[in-house]
Computed example of a mutant assay.
Amino acid sequence: MWGDKDEKKKKETIFEEDHYTFLGKGVDFKGKANFDGTVRVDGHFEGEITTADTLIIGEHAVIKGSIIGGVIVSGGKVEGNIVASKKVQLLKPAVLIGDVQSPSFSMEEGVLFQGVCDMGISHLDDLEPSTTLENVHDLNAHRDHKLRSQEA
């Protein structure tokens, strides 16, 4: 029961196969970071974070800079723009000062959000993890131009 080797192997296999990065409380990081798999930040980060998977921003985290990811879940403080290919979820007591581009956006009561939210993006699924915010803005300008030319 408690010493079941098969159960132990399953747990070890799960951790070996999953990519999970953790920047704990007390960690200060500046620069560009590109991650594979799920990332959790509980420290201070200044720069650009990119992951094709999930970014979890803990309650004590402070991020200044741009974030690009698949799913962004935040309970911390972010000052910068967020681009997500799947969804952005802000949990109390999150603070977000910046713009959001994502097909899905949710926010709990008690969250402070100051910025613009664009949920009309359909091309983010095709973004490479190395895509920068400048590239996303270029894609948006191209999409807006295409829409205006179709209306004319």
Rank of each mutant, 00 (worst) to 15 (best):
W2M: 07
D6A: 13
D6N: 06
E7S: 12
K8W: 02
K8I: 14
K10R: 13
K10H: 09
K11D: 01
K11I: 15
K11W: 07
T13W: 13
T13I: 15
Y20Q: 09
T21D: 02
F22Y: 15
G24M: 01
K25P: 05
F29K: 03
K30C: 03
G31V: 02
N34D: 02
N34Q: 11
N34K: 13
T38H: 05
R40F: 01
D42L: 01
D42C: 03
G43W: 01
F45P: 00
E48A: 08
T50Y: 10
E59L: 04
I63R: 01
K64N: 02
S66C: 05
G70R: 06
S74E: 00
S74R: 00
G75M: 09
G76S: 09
V78K: 04
I82M: 01
S85N: 04
K86N: 06
K86A: 07
Q89D: 08
Q89K: 09
K92H: 11
K92G: 06
P93C: 04
P93S: 04
P93K: 00
A94S: 10
A94V: 05
A94N: 03
I97E: 12
G98N: 03
G98H: 07
V100N: 05
V100L: 06
Q101N: 12
S102M: 06
S104W: 05
F105A: 11
M107K: 12
M107G: 07
E108A: 10
E109S: 14
G110C: 05
V111I: 07
G115Y: 11
G115H: 10
C117D: 04
D118E: 09
S122Q: 10
D125S: 15
S130A: 11
T131K: 13
H137Y: 10
A141K: 10
H142F: 10
K146E: 13
L147F: 05
L147V: 04
L147R: 11
A152E: 15
